[in-house]
Simulated assay, not measured.
Amino acid sequence: MHVDAWLQAISPLWICLLVGLVIGVESLGIPLPGEIVLVSAALMAAQGVVDPFWVGVCASAGAIIGDSIGYAIGRKGGKPMFDRLGRRFPKHFGPDHIDKAERYFQRYGMWTVFFGRFIALLRILAGPIAGAVRMPYWKFLIANVLGGIAWAGGTTAVVYYLGRVAEKWLKGFSWAGLAAAVLFGAATMLIVKRRAAKMAAQEALEPVTAD
Rank of each mutant, 00 (worst) to 15 (best):
V165A: 15
L178Q: 09
A45D: 01
R123W: 07
L121H: 09
I119R: 05
I64T: 13
E206W: 12
A61S: 12
W6T: 08
M81W: 07
L205E: 15
L85E: 00
V57T: 11
A201G: 07
A176L: 14
A179T: 15
I69W: 05
D51E: 02
P31V: 08
I129A: 05
R123E: 03
V145T: 15
A63E: 09
G29T: 15
F140I: 04
G24Y: 07
W138E: 03
F89G: 00
L18N: 02
L146M: 13
Q47F: 04
F89H: 06
H2S: 14
K139G: 00
L18H: 04
I15A: 06
V133L: 03
Y160R: 10
G109S: 08
D51I: 01
Y108K: 03
A152Q: 13
S11G: 11
G116R: 08
A101K: 11
G66V: 02
F114P: 08
A210I: 07
M1P: 05
L7T: 02
E102T: 12
A197L: 11
A176K: 14
H92Y: 11
I119L: 10
L122H: 02
D211Q: 15
A179N: 10
F53N: 06
R195F: 13
G116M: 09
G94W: 01
T112F: 02
Q47I: 02
A126Y: 04
L32N: 10
A63D: 10
W111R: 12
M199R: 08
I124R: 10
I119M: 05
Y108P: 00
L38H: 06
V182T: 14
K76D: 00
V57R: 11
G86F: 00
V55D: 04
V25G: 10
L85M: 02
N144Q: 11
L13Y: 14
A176C: 04
R84G: 00
A186D: 08
L18F: 04
R123M: 09
E206P: 05
A143L: 11
S27P: 09
A72F: 10
Y160G: 06
V158G: 01
W151T: 10
I191S: 06
S174W: 06
